[in-house]
Design a protein around this nucleic acid. Structure first.
Lengths: 237, 237, 237, 237
DNA sequence: TATGAATGAGGCTTCATTCAT
DNA sequence: GATGAATGAAGCCTCATTCAT
């Protein structure tokens, strides 16, 4: 790569896009200044398409029409910009599933249903920021990383508890709680890898669909088919 | 901030590890020289833990006990190392699911079962290399990227066809083929984000478990619970 | 220049050329081995088209079908290759004008005539090597450079003496000996900057023509036209 | 051999020199910033003494008291610095001979006289920059090289036309226009190879002297001396 | 003689960051 | 707040050269 690093989606392209591809701009606290919010939104896009390390401070500030030095008027460092993005996204995602309106749902089936739908929908709606928050953790300082891990843990607990309650109360089948919860989170998160706003699913539709799958996973008893066919011949491949 | 980029797992750490954390070393063609294979294995670890851009050529060559310049005796560029890794991993994963022993299975249920088990197992066994091959695509040159996309597409088709066959033959429920196939792939791939060899699941166990989930998703008819609860109060979050 | 440095005439091109563009291969002592002579010839071409510093040992050895390491079997260093070229070229050029058949010519006019013709012809015939020997002096080590300077001085003296004799004997006009000799050398040397074997002049023709010019410069009395027109307006340009 | 490449005139030496050896600093457009002009002047000296490829960006920026990175604040690349130098020098030299005050001269003799004097004087005055612009063309990118070639062609045409006019009008002898023009240019250019400001010729004197020679070459009819003596004995040398 | 592999020493360039204005 | 200029620290890659084979 003699030219510019991979830029499947460069600064220039970004400027040409409709004001937003996802709803990242709605993510930032109102308390932040206008410029800060625009910088964060620009950073989200850059980090999402090129990765944290392949994004320069010039990419970010340039996307907002400012010089690289301007970034430092608003953030102490590039890493802090990343942290703000990841912290906010994790906090929002956790907030989405700890919303009292959800936690108050008695019925385990409807509870898990709502949980998965909301979580998935959140990730789809903010898929660009969510992508950064899932894939750029390695760019964080150890201290910031620790802090994020904590939020992630709390999110995991929410799902694990929801599955557990269903199993305990008999609303679900006798599934392996940890593994099923883990799979549900996979479905809710992995979409940031491939979701595009211009695809056929709206965030709501994707949320509904994923919730269905989660319930099937939790409510259907295991099939007994014996071990999967395992041809020795090519196992090494 | 001159602080060294996040290196949760640096060259030094790598040297201290047991000979292998996963089975990446088994991935490379026998036709490659010993040194090339060791460089690829080292690169896989570095890219997986720090990312392509945060890995230096010194990290890679140093992990093998060579000088940075030595890398260029064996590969034309750092990007080519990445490409070899991603290309090989994609090719192997595709090979795993196009194994004639699998494609020959008549019964749609047992077919999907085997497919998912094998695919998942492959990703778990080679989770470090697979992680690189899923998350470092942005490091590829446009030409190399195109080439990989092609393999990915063929893999997707394998799964889509398997689900389709089950639905057509009535072995599965009347599910949305594309969406279910997509979800199955998510389960098979997302594990590279969190899988650890020292966890409680062996690649085989994880494969079996995921296959179960896939079948539940494909065979269980949709539940009808009406729209998920949607509290207006906090939707903005 | 992200690609290869300027290669107006690359290794590949060279291989495609008729065996020689100039007669460099005839330059090397018979006492040298075949491989050494081919390496010198290849080096001459590379240095002439790309310059000493832009030529790699791989360029040279590759043009002869050998590996870079092979160069060191025949020469102690790249600089020594350059020195051998420059040394040989300077020695040959000096030899051309100290040929007893020339130095023996009594008539100053015919003497200068012959001197210029032979010197010019030599540079045209070996223009590629001569180009290196004139323009790549900066690539020499100080010791080697000194050595070459000595040969150059002796060559200059030959011309100065020839002009001087003509002026003293009255065969030439009352010209400024040093300046005219210098100008004659300029004509004999500068052709290495632009001479091409495929142009309209053969080395012999160019020699004859240049000799004519030299005689005109030496034999014609100065014109008196007063100072050249010197427009103040644009002197600064 | 790690010995530093030939540096007959290093960064350190440069700093010790009187403010200027030639008038390169007067060459740059006023529109350029101060730092840019100083960088260009420093680069001219470095390129002239060591060659483009043997000059490092550190040499250039260091000569101006800046860090290597500073060069890139002012120029996109080292090659661009070279191009600016060569482009400017070629443009200025062409401007010197297309000055309306010259082109307006009716008398072919006085016209050629003025042309040669001005052209030579220009090269002597700016001999350091001119040396770079004549000998470092191989350092240019193909695109930039093309651009320079165009200017060179236009300069050649100026001289060719001047000689032609003299011949046509009968002011000159029946000389070979192309060859004589070529020789005149050789005299005007070759001085960059050997001219030193501390020598006995001022730019003006050298201009006058060279103009005399040019007129002799153009106005004197050819001598007829028969073929130059050609001793067979040593032709091979 | 020839070479594949290796490397120390850079060279060009980039970049996060600072600072005077 | 904003920026142009500047830079220390690196990063990728090249290259002359060595050496075991």
């Amino acid at each position: 790569m003699a030219k510019k690093r991979q830029a499947r989606f460069t600064t220039e392209d970004l400027e040409g896009l409709p004001e937003l591809e996802d709803e990242s701009p709605m993510l930032w606290d109102e308390s932040r200044g206008e410029v800060q919010r625009r910088l964060l939104t620009a950073a989200v896009r850059c980090f999402a398409s090129n990765g944290f390390h392949a994004t320069t401070t010039r990419d970010i500030s340039g996307a907002v029409g400012l010089s690289p030095a301007a970034l430092y008027v608003h953030f102490p460092s590039k890493e802090d910009v990343l942290f703000e993005i990841i912290r906010t996204a994790h906090a929002r995602a956790l907030a989405a599933v700890t919303d009292p309106a959800l936690t108050g749902i008695e019925d385990p089936v409807r509870h898990l249903w709502a949980l998965v739908a909301r979580y998935t929908e959140w990730h789809a709606r903010y898929h660009v920021a969510a992508r950064v928050s899932q894939y750029e953790l390695a760019g964080l300082s150890p201290e910031h990383y620790e802090q994020i891990l904590e939020t992630r843990h709390r999110t995991n607990v929410v799902f694990r508890s929801a599955v557990e309650r269903g199993v305990t109360t008999g609303a679900f089948a006798e599934v392996d709680v940890k593994r099923v919860a883990r799979a549900i989170l996979s479905l809710g998160i992995d979409l940031v890898r491939w979701y595009r706003r211009d695809g056929s699913d709206s965030p709501e539709q994707l949320g509904e669909f994923t919730a269905q799958l989660a319930l099937k996973m939790a409510m259907t008893p295991d099939l007994d088919l014996g071990p999967a066919p395992r041809p020795e011949s090519t196992l090494a491949s």
